[in-house]
């Protein structure tokens, strides 16, 4: 990897199969990739393990950027279920909306969703961070163990059901909280981490706007289900 000079390679999924794309990305010969015509294909850019940048021009199906490590994947379109599932590090950036189970079980890294995230976003989250600029669907953050989820819009029903140590920052309305998930005090350390997450997600202006930051509420575990 270190020896690569900055180059961009175009990869057209109308001409070559996903399998070839993934094999190229697993042994990259360039630092930057532009993927054309994804047309809802599944498993696009999964298992990346190098600090490469991949830009996908269109909508993707299931599990785009699954188990992602080190690199950056940007989807200039919509993402199907399980985008960035179990990601470990790096960044995945969805410019449109994301379907259900976005960022499921992510252990690290940052998932940014410019639009809305559907149900079960951040389910079983294990240390990754998710910033949803729109709204987030019901059953999100179910059993979330660690990591942070920021929602700039509203959230659906049963948010954070059986949540462990993950922290949720939600700006808008929450339809309902799940079992053992409660509203929590926003202390200075929480404000700081929220500001940082907003900045990481490219929301510099909002992050510097105190009133904007103040409009978030923190949610987390009441820890009453930890032992039988």
């Amino acid at each position: 990897m270190e020896t690569l000079t900055q180059t961009t390679v175009e990869f057209d999924l109308a001409e070559k199969p996903v399998r070839e794309l993934n094999q190229e990305l697993h042994n990259p010969t360039a630092t930057n990739y532009k993927v054309l015509n994804p047309r809802g294909e599944h498993s696009v850019a999964v298992g990346i393990n190098d600090p490469i940048e991949v830009e996908i021009e269109g909508d993707v199906g299931y599990y785009c950027a699954g188990m992602h490590q080190h690199g950056t994947v940007t989807v200039n379109g919509m993402a199907g279920p399980g985008v960035a599932e179990n990601m470990m590090s790096g960044t995945v950036h969805i410019k449109g909306h994301a379907s259900q189970s976005a960022g499921a079980t992510a252990h690290g890294g940052l998932l940014i969703i410019e639009g809305n995230a559907s149900t079960r976003c951040g389910i079983s989250l294990k240390g990754g961070d998710i910033v949803v600029k729109g709204n987030m669907g019901s059953k999100s953050a179910f059993m979330a163990q660690a990591g942070r989820i920021v929602v700039c819009g509203d959230a659906g029903e049963d948010i954070g059901d059986s949540i462990f140590e993950a922290r949720l920052y939600i700006r808008g309305e929450v339809a309902s909280l799940g079992a053992d998930c409660v509203r929590k005090e926003m202390r200075e350390e929480h404000r700081e981490e929220l500001v940082q997450l907003l900045k990481d997600a490219g929301m510099e202006e909002e992050a510097n706007d105190e009133a904007y930051v103040d409009s978030f509420t923190r949610y987390g575990s009441a820890r009453t289900l930890y032992n039988f």
Partner: peptide, 29 residues
């Protein structure tokens, strides 16, 4: 020290069609 109860369903797939895609993803990775 907490009592850990795992989930009984996979977090990112339900049903046979999803399983097909999950297996494809694992193969691709």
């Amino acid at each position: 020290g907490i009592d850990q109860r795992s989930a009984c369903r996979h977090p990112d797939w339900t049903g046979p069609d999803d399983l097909t895609l999950k297996i494809q993803e694992l193969r691709e990775i």
